[in-house]
Structure formats: structure tokens, C-alpha cells
């Protein structure tokens, strides 16, 4: 049997950044003994062993740590079979829309013996989102383009959010109307023509992964959009470069992301 952590609760290895954040949010931080290679939040995870990710889970080191629970991605079927064979419980993370975030929070919470804390955290998460939704309800909905990737400094290879997924949900909740909502996919490679035709009133240009914090860089990214002056968002100065992993990780920090997006939409 895997060694129990303090209080008889199981230890956890989480290869999924969103779930790692949930574990810390439900107070299970001390039980986390290993994380994935892409985990960077909360700061405590920096000192934990990195055990691979979607394509390269480090099975040997995971086995040596003998966690009570292993969090993996739902597509890691082989790893799941291996782990269950040696008696490690598995939480297979799957995410689609925004509703999945509190749902997953409750699930992982009860799996690691933190059901009550998880219920509290998930309810707080839902409450905060409700508040944002309520505040946005009174405002006119702005037609919004949600971009989560393009070439640095140029309007090429533009990836936008379609009408499925947590980003679309967050923007809708925060008072925006996704211009590509009718495309039922999470990601859409859109042409400059499609953007000109969609005529968004707000552009949210999301940046993550690297350090994009400097104002000069944000200004340069904003300036790239000046190539399309007929787009209302460009004409009225409503191009917002928002940087940070919180916008793309479907975890508890989506509340902050939603607040930032709501503020941008209000601006």
C-alpha cells in the first residue's frame, strides 16, 4: 500500500497543471509529492519533482514515489492501465467547458480526502463566476474575438476560440459575444478576411507560456493589429493583450482570468 500522508490522506502525483492548481486550492497541497513538467503554479510546485507530462510520463519515478492517487490526462490510457495494475488510484482529467472546472474540483477533492474543502472551493468558484456574470448582464454584449496564438508581432497564423471550450464560456459569462461562436470547435485557424468580415468590437489577444509581461512587448503585439484598421476593435482601441497562464489553464485561477476579461470587455 502507498504510504499515507499526514492525516491518513493519500499522497498525489499530478501531471495536469489544472488539477495541480485545484489540489492546492482544496488544501491538498501538502499531499502533492510530484507534478508534471508544465506545472508552474502555485509557486510551491517549483520544489517538487517533475515527472513528465502527456507524452513522456516518467513511470519509474512515479512508481518509486508510490502516490496514493495519480492525476493524468484522459488520453493517457496506457499509463492508467499500468498504474491501476499496481494499485495506484487514477484520476483521469478531462475538460470541455467551464462547468467542468468546479466538477473536477469536487471529484479530485473527494478522491484525496478533502471533500468538504473541495465543496467549499468549488462553491466559491461558482459564486465568483455568478457575480461576474451578474455584473456583465446589465451591459451591452460586445462582439469579441478571442485569439490565443499568432506569430509574434505579425497577424499571421491566427488561432482563435470557436464556440466550444472554457475560453468561449468565460468570455460569454464576462459579457462578450464570441464572433466565431458558430464554429463548433475549440480552436479555429482564421484568416484576416474572416476577422475583417466578423468585425469584432473587442479583441482579446491572449499570451501565455513565456514571459510576456513587459509593457513594450504588449504594445508591440497590440500594434500588430493596426494592419486591420477597419476592424471596430482596432479603430476604437479595444485590442487587449492579456498575458498569463491563468487564461489557458482550466483551473481555479479562471476566476481571475474571468475578472480580467470582464474588465477588458467593460473598458
Amino acid at each position: 500500500m502507498p504510504p499515507p500522508a499526514a492525516g491518513g490522506r493519500p499522497t498525489v502525483v499530478s501531471l495536469v497543471p489544472a488539477v495541480t492548481e485545484m489540489l492546492f486550492a482544496v488544501g491538498a497541497g501538502p499531499q502533492v509529492v510530484g507534478v508534471g513538467s508544465f506545472d508552474s503554479w502555485p509557486p510551491e510546485v517549483r520544489h517538487l519533482p517533475k515527472l513528465g507530462a502527456l507524452l513522456d510520463p516518467d513511470v519509474e519515478r512515479i512508481l518509486r514515489l508510490r502516490p496514493g492517487v495519480l492525476v493524468l490526462h484522459v488520453s493517457q490510457q496506457e499509463l492508467r492501465t499500468q498504474m491501476e495494475r499496481v494499485g495506484i488510484r487514477v484520476f483521469a482529467h478531462a475538460t470541455g467547458g467551464l462547468d467542468d472546472v468546479p466538477r473536477n474540483m469536487r471529484k479530485i477533492g473527494s478522491l484525496v480526502g478533502r471533500a468538504a474543502e473541495a465543496e467549499e472551493a468549488a462553491a466559491a468558484f461558482e459564486r465568483s463566476l455568478d457575480e461576474i456574470r451578474a455584473r456583465a448582464a446589465g451591459r451591452a454584449r460586445r462582439r469579441t474575438l478571442i485569439v490565443f496564438g499568432h506569430e509574434p508581432g505579425a497577424l499571421r497564423a491566427i488561432d482563435a476560440s470557436g464556440g466550444i471550450g472554457f475560453l468561449h464560456d468565460v468570455v460569454t459569462l464576462a459579457g462578450g459575444e464570441n464572433v466565431f461562436a458558430s464554429v463548433k470547435r475549440e480552436s479555429v485557424r482564421v484568416s484576416t478576411e474572416a476577422i475583417l468580415a466578423a468585425a469584432p468590437e473587442v479583441i482579446l489577444d491572449l499570451r501565455y507560456g513565456q514571459e510576456w509581461e513587459s509593457e513594450a512587448e504588449a504594445a508591440r503585439e497590440r500594434a500588430a493589429w493596426n494592419a486591420l484598421p477597419a476592424v471596430p476593435a482596432v479603430r476604437t482601441g479595444r485590442v487587449h493583450v492579456l498575458s498569463g497562464d491563468r487564461f489557458v489553464i482550466p483551473g481555479p485561477r479562471l476566476v481571475e482570468a474571468a475578472r480580467d476579461i470582464a474588465a477588458a470587455l467593460e473598458d
Partner: peptide
């Protein structure tokens, strides 16, 4: 293309380029 375009509006000099989506679809996209 995927969106209808009016050539008359594309070359309509009375509308400034910055405010002319048709001209931009034609000349930029």
C-alpha cells in the same frame, strides 16, 4: 472569397481606407 464584396465600395474613394472593410478585405486580406 468567403464574404461577399462590393467592388464599388472597394474603390469608393469617399470612404477613408481605415473605415472601409470592403477595401481592407480586398487590399489587406
Amino acid at each position: 472569397g468567403s464574404t461577399p464584396l462590393s467592388l464599388r465600395r472597394v474603390f469608393d474613394g469617399s470612404v477613408p481606407f481605415a473605415e472601409n472593410p470592403d477595401a481592407q478585405i480586398f487590399f489587406v486580406a
